[in-house]
C-alpha cells in the first residue's frame, strides 16, 4: 500500500469514486448544455459539477481534490463566470436593450438555439460550480484549522 492510500476513505469507496466521478462531471455538463431545451440549466449543472469535485475530496482527502482545482483557481473561475455573465448582458446593448437576446433564436428543441441563453447557462455554471466548491473548501479547511 502506498502512502497515497492512507488518506481518505477505504479502497471500496475510492474505486467506486474513480469510476463514477467522471460520469457525474459529464452529466453536469450535459445538464448545462441542454439547459435551454429541457429542465435544468446553469445552476443545476453547476451544482452537479461542484458535487463531483466534492465527491473526490470526500473519498481521497482534500489534497487530491485541491491538486485538480486549487482554491485560487476556484475563485478565479467564479469571478470569470460572473464577469462573463455581465458581459453577455451588456452585449445586449448592441441591439438597444440591456440583457437583450441579440443572437438568432434558431429552431426550438435544437441544441444550437435560443440565442444567448446557452451562453448565460455556461457563465452561470462556472460561477455556481466554482463558488459552491470554494464554499465547501472554505468550510473544510476552517474545520481542520480549529481541530489542531
Amino acid at each position: 500500500m502506498s502512502r497515497e492510500h492512507k488518506k481518505g476513505m477505504s479502497l471500496i469507496v475510492k474505486t467506486i469514486t474513480r469510476l463514477t466521478v467522471g460520469l457525474i462531471l459529464l452529466y453536469g455538463i450535459y445538464i448545462i448544455l441542454h439547459g435551454h431545451v429541457s429542465p435544468g440549466g446553469g445552476f443545476a449543472g453547476g451544482v452537479i459539477i461542484a458535487l463531483s469535485f466534492v465527491h473526490l475530496m470526500l473519498a481521497y482527502g482534500k489534497e487530491t481534490a485541491l491538486r485538480k482545482v486549487s482554491r485560487s483557481a476556484a475563485s478565479f473561475f467564479e469571478s470569470v463566470g460572473a464577469t462573463l455573465f455581465l458581459l453577455i448582458a451588456l452585449l445586449g446593448f448592441t441591439g438597444g436593450y440591456f440583457f437583450l437576446n441579440f443572437l438568432g433564436k434558431g429552431e426550438p428543441f435544437k441544441l444550437f438555439s435560443a440565442g444567448i441563453i446557452p451562453l448565460c447557462n455556461i457563465a452561470i455554471s462556472l460561477k455556481v460550480g466554482a463558488g459552491l466548491f470554494a464554499i465547501f473548501v472554505a468550510l473544510v479547511v476552517l474545520n481542520l484549522d480549529s481541530e489542531k
Partner: peptide, 23 residues
C-alpha cells in the same frame, strides 16, 4: 429556485460564522 440559491448563500455564511464562533 432563485430563493433557494439566495438561501444557500446566506446559510453557507451562517454556518461559516458559526464555525468561527465555535473556534
Amino acid at each position: 429556485l432563485t430563493a433557494i440559491v439566495i438561501s444557500l448563500a446566506s446559510t453557507a455564511l451562517l454556518v461559516a460564522i458559526a464555525m468561527r464562533i465555535y473556534e
